[in-house]
Design a protein around this nucleic acid. Structure first.
Lengths: 121, 121
DNA sequence: CTGAATCCTATAGGATACTG
DNA sequence: CAGTATCCTATAGGATTCAG
């Protein structure tokens, strides 16, 4: 049992997972990976089904864990943008793998995501 | 929006995640990766905190998704063993990365998991 | 030993309305 | 635009007991 900051983890993987648990975190991170500097509403529009509550909650946790950083662009009109930190970028192989793995498996099920990407908007 | 078998996914990553969601799946899979052919009670003993309900539920889903396979070793006494399928092994980079990433980050927090692994049993 | 079945609770998560 | 706050529900998940 690993202990760090009053929390316990059964193994390193369990520890890693603690950064990316929650329904939307990996999707938020990967969106930032493929398209950096996104606004709050960008996420709303590109994460079908996310509720505002979850979005702001997960964004806050990701920010707390230093995986993303929020920059206030202007006070009025109030504008912000989110981006991956250097630390958040160290998870790049994760997004990449999950994406590649999914694409490959979808292909075996007759769905060519790359070729027909425009269909899946 | 990608549709497959009556389910919808926002992107390939979302699709991949559908195989590994649930609190214990990745840990179960990684345990099988590092130590193949485990029995039901092996999991009970090596996944601190897992309830029997969750364990059997997640094992069943993993089996349904063809990521693991259950072999009945003997009828009486009733004995089984679980192992990764070839398909399940295609997720190996995932376990590996999450493990490496966690170990590295732990190290930066003064925890040398490799060297002191015996302490974390 | 390997689970399935029940029952229960906490929390994840959604919908909506509101604020600077 | 970028969130908060509130209220509500569904489900994840735990504890325990039972069964082949």
């Amino acid at each position: 049992m690993i202990q760090l900051n009053d929390k316990k983890y059964t193994c390193p993987i369990d520890f890693s997972l603690s950064f990316i648990d929650g329904k939307w975190k990996i999707l938020i991170l990967s969106h930032l990976h493929y398209c950096s500097n996104r606004s709050y509403s960008d996420f709303c529009n590109n994460l079908p089904g996310v509720s505002e509550k979850m979005l702001s909650q997960q964004l806050k946790e990701l920010e707390r864990d230093k995986l993303i950083i929020k920059t206030i662009l202007s006070k009025k009109p109030y504008r912000v943008e989110y981006a991956l930190t250097e630390f958040g970028k160290t998870l790049t192989p994760l997004y990449q793998f999950l994406s590649d793995w999914g694409i490959q498996y979808l292909k075996q099920n007759g769905i060519d995501y790359i070729k027909d990407q425009h269909l899946y908007k």
